[in-house]
């Protein structure tokens, strides 16, 4: 409990600035939508001229960006990218920082097992991730309503944010697992973001090259894409299961790896 509270206190400022950043991003993003619509030009036609590869890379593969829902679906990818960077960084640093800042010798000689300390840290990180998700959710509902022109997007947003939470957890625990298993605490955060961005690039590669479609199982960015979720109003169970399996495997790796290894002092 003390570790949990300590980590909440240590992270609240960062969480505030991340939330602030997300507010700006969603607000500015949706403001741009009005600019599109108000320009009066037929942007759809222009959009259709963009090669499908580029469309995929920019995140609006099959979305009708002239509709608020379609535009939000495109914006969602960028929101997702930001919050997963947050999650991966947080997961890696919350574990690695004791070694990075040379405080592990203090913390790990207290009467608490490494597992107990990890639990406090991971719970605090999970709270941070959920809070950031709720900020995005609340803001999306509020901002999108202004531009929706009668479209009701609340259920879409709820579904997308639910999916986003799953992906956030996958990357949070991937980050913590990297920091726990790997013996180089100073490099853990950059390693976690590298892995995360690699999966993002992979998701674009899969979009662009249909022959590589089987690789979609390797990148969480392909598991919960806006277009199919908004169309089906549901997730594909196989990906929910996959996300759960990866998250649990990473949690296990975090505990086992951190419990076993020598601390870097």
């Amino acid at each position: 409990m003390n570790v949990f509270l300590r980590e909440l206190r240590a992270n609240w400022k960062a969480l505030f600035w991340w939330s602030f950043g997300m507010v700006l991003m969603i607000y500015a993003g949706m403001a741009k939508y009005t600019a599109y619509v108000d320009s009066g030009q037929d942007i759809t036609a222009m959009m259709n001229q963009i090669p499908s590869t580029l469309r995929a890379a920019l995140g609006f593969g099959d979305l009708d960006v002239m509709k608020a829902s379609g535009f939000y679906g495109m914006l969602y990818l960028y929101v997702l990218l930001m919050v997963t960077i947050h999650a991966a960084l947080l997961g890696a640093t919350i574990v690695a920082k004791e070694e990075r800042d040379r405080t592990s010798e203090f913390l790990m000689t207290r009467p608490a097992s490494r597992a107990r300390i990890l639990t406090g840290k991971l719970l605090a990180a999970a709270v941070n991730v959920v809070v950031l998700n709720l900020v995005c959710l609340g803001l999306s509902v509020a901002v999108v309503a202004q531009y929706a022109h009668g479209e009701d997007l609340t259920s879409d947003i709820l579904l997308l944010m639910g999916a986003m939470l799953l992906v956030q957890f996958v990357f949070l625990f991937l980050g913590s697992a990297i920091a726990a298993v790997w013996k180089r605490p100073k490099a853990a955060a950059s390693a976690a973001t590298t892995v995360m961005l690699t999966t993002y690039v992979l998701s674009i590669v899969v979009d662009v090259n249909k022959n590589l479609d089987f690789l979609r199982y390797l990148t969480p960015f392909k598991w919960f894409q806006a277009a199919p979720i908004m169309r089906d109003q549901a997730y594909q169970p196989v990906y929910v299961a996959l996300a759960a399996v990866v998250a649990v495997a990473c949690i296990v790796a975090t505990y086992v790896g951190y419990g076993k290894r020598d601390l870097y002092i």
């Binding site: 592990s104 010798e105 790990m108 000689t109 076993k260 290894r261 020598d262 601390l263 002092i265």
Partner: peptide, 9 residues
Amino acid sequence: IRTLLNLIH
């Protein structure tokens, strides 16, 4: 000492 304290194994 660090071995005694379980910081390293």
